[in-house]
Design a protein around this nucleic acid. Structure first.
Lengths: 384, 384
DNA sequence: AATCTATCTGAAAACGTTTTCTCCGCGAGC
DNA sequence: GCTCGCGGAGAAAACGTTTTCAGATAGATT
């Protein structure tokens, strides 16, 4: 249905103080029209005469009327709210991602319901349920620990579209959007080779978690694709400062001729810990050992030495995330209505969309800063 | 009204896949009861016989029913949602604050609608309007730029309680919760004095913004209360890395006998910039110059040298914020209903609460790390 | 045996919107 | 002189809950 007139907007200055809980009925009374007319002015999807339109707008402003989003949502079955489930909003990667997601959602007229799962599977599922109850139009979930069985089961209970973000959830019935660690890793290895490094170590994340394994494998593959044959020195642990510290300690123990002259850390925090630890062992970065980190949050360039990183495309990722969710919503809206009455007792495994939305991968890149430099002279000599 | 039985909870594992958009009616049908009975099981505020209760719970689980929060909110006039307006969620101070706010809100059964005002007054007011439409039960606003007139006008349009957080809004008709910079500042000056420093400079924030002025005045007062008479060296600018860098440059120009041996920065970022800049001028921290920062986010201890800071009580602040909002909501609920029909055309300046909620101040503290140390020997000598 | 409670249940109203349906008036086309 | 279509307005039905109100059943008390 075409819009006949611009719906009335609620700009800042024009509203005037008034009693609370004003309803469309009050507005109608004040304007001397029916509530239908007020609604038409509000939504703009039916013609209203010039004069009545004016009276309604006036009444709205004088009463400080704010439409009740609950009632509207109930009626039109859409809320213009998106749910975002993140493992830890205090983590700069997620908080920066949340920022751009919020920004783009706002741009499209959507609000964000923020859920911090605190890395708990229990809470993640709880939030999934909550968002379903709140009837959000879409969800973006950066999954902590939920299994795909659980998520799939929950997903079939909701009408919202759901996008797995950043962390892949194998088996999950729904699209995924994230970054491919390989391009950045390939660049990183190339960069280090060009600087004369030949022994390049890796500080990886926990074994067994998907995204951690993926990053590690990408680095190893980059390693091989550059023709390095030797098995790299590897240290593993959670993505934390502590892991980096331990890696540094282990590194310092190694005889200098076996010690990597460069290390790629799969986490920003491990990189910080690593550098600190190396420092405390009298090893300078990048003079003695070069370090490549991950993620490229604002702190990477604040840190001394400023951290060379395999950068995730945070901006692009947030932008694409909301675009993708919106696109999924459109597709879902065009879809034929659900296949009428399912047989009683039948567990309906209806896929959210008839035509499945494809996964989407954004490339990582290398951002060179000061934590990487030429391989130390001794190594360079041996090279020559 | 007493609760007769525990309302049915929606635990993770027990829900089973089913078609979407299940309503209380479907549940009632499946269980062979009326919708009233289902509702009673849901809310738990009326007795339901053992047998019917069982059947209803069973039906709920089999259908994967999730109550519609919109309909419920519409009916009971509460949403269990709190709005949070922050200037920039990517700023670690705000993201850490948001984290603990979300955590405590969740603890009390509330969700958080996140609004990132991007430091824009326009958007802040827009969000205020939005949250009103969404009928959130309460708002916490860390105000960027809105004036109290605007906020007051908007506030009288909402039924939600609203708390000004962190940044004071003079003239705003509503309580404020924030930190008092003085205790931390007093400790900081004392700490520096004990280390032998006598010339202590200040990198302050922009002149004219409330919280910036407050911090500055607190530091100056601490200065005086410790008996320092000389006017401190002062550099001003926005709370940014760049300001710190410029301050460092200015500092480096000073003749050494006039140069402060310690600097207190009113912002974490200024402190980082300052240290970087001093470094680039060949001045070591803390050997040549000690630096005290602000805020105590996670980065402060990651940074090298780890930053001594005047710490804001982030945890406590977030916790108190939601407790206070909840308490305000209770008070508002007990309040006599609004004084009936206001005269037509009357602008009702109704205060949100009959008995105003008092402002609340939490103390800052000093956290000593490595960026502060004994005053350099030359200064110490002159002292002796 | 009749009444009185206490406990439980269901029908229906309400919450504040949007939208369908009906109706009205009016100018255009036959 | 009708009908047709169309711009415009209002009444009323829906959306999915909670809650009030009125009954029903059963056990206890007279």
């Amino acid at each position: 249905m075409r819009r006949h007139r611009r719906p009335v907007s609620f700009r800042a200055g024009k509203l005037v103080a008034a009693m609370s809980r004003v309803t469309v009925k009050d507005v109608a009374e004040k304007a001397g029209v029916s509530i239908s007319t007020v609604s038409r002015v509000l939504t703009g999807n039916a013609p209203v005469s010039r004069e009545l339109h004016r009276r309604v707008v006036e009444a709205i402003e004088e009463l400080g009327y704010r439409p009740n989003a609950l009632a509207r949502g109930l009626r039109i079955r859409r809320t213009a709210v998106l749910g975002l489930i993140v493992p830890d909003i205090a983590n700069p990667f997620f908080s920066q991602l949340a920022r751009v997601i919020e920004q783009h959602a706002h741009l499209h007229g959507y609000s964000i319901l923020l859920c911090n799962s605190e890395n708990s599977r229990e809470r993640e599922l709880q939030y999934f349920s909550l968002l379903t109850s709140q009837r959000v139009d879409g969800m973006m979930v950066i999954s902590s620990a939920a299994t795909h069985e659980q998520l799939n089961r929950f997903q079939s209970n909701t009408d919202a579209v759901v996008l797995a973000l950043d962390r892949r959830i194998p088996g999950f019935r729904g699209p995924w959007l994230g970054a491919d660690p390989y391009p950045g890793a390939y660049e990183a290895v190339g960069h280090l080779l060009a600087l004369g490094h030949r022994r390049i170590g890796i500080v990886r994340g926990l074994e067994g978690t998907i995204s951690s394994d993926e990053r590690f494998e990408a680095i190893v593959r980059a390693y091989q694709d550059h023709g390095l044959s030797e098995d790299p020195w590897v240290f593993g642990g959670p993505y934390s400062v502590e892991t980096g510290v331990q890696a540094g300690n282990a590194l310092a123990q190694l005889p200098v001729e076996k010690r990597p002259t460069a290390v790629i850390a799969a986490s920003e925090f491990s990189a910080y810990g690593l550098i600190q630890s190396l420092h405390s062992h009298g090893l300078a970065v990048p003079e003695d050992i070069s370090v490549v980190g991950y993620d490229n949050t604002a702190f990477a360039e604040l840190f001394r030495p400023a951290l060379t990183v395999i950068a995730q495309p945070i901006e692009r990722m947030g932008e694409r995330a909301v675009e993708k969710v919106l696109q999924m919503m459109e597709a879902a809206a065009d879809e034929p209505p659900p296949p009428v009455a399912p047989l009683p007792g039948t567990v309906r495994q209806r896929p959210r969309l008839a035509v499945p939305v494809p996964d989407e991968t954004l490339p990582t890149t290398l951002v060179v800063r000061q934590s990487t430099g030429p391989a130390p002279a001794s190594a360079a000599l041996r090279l020559a």
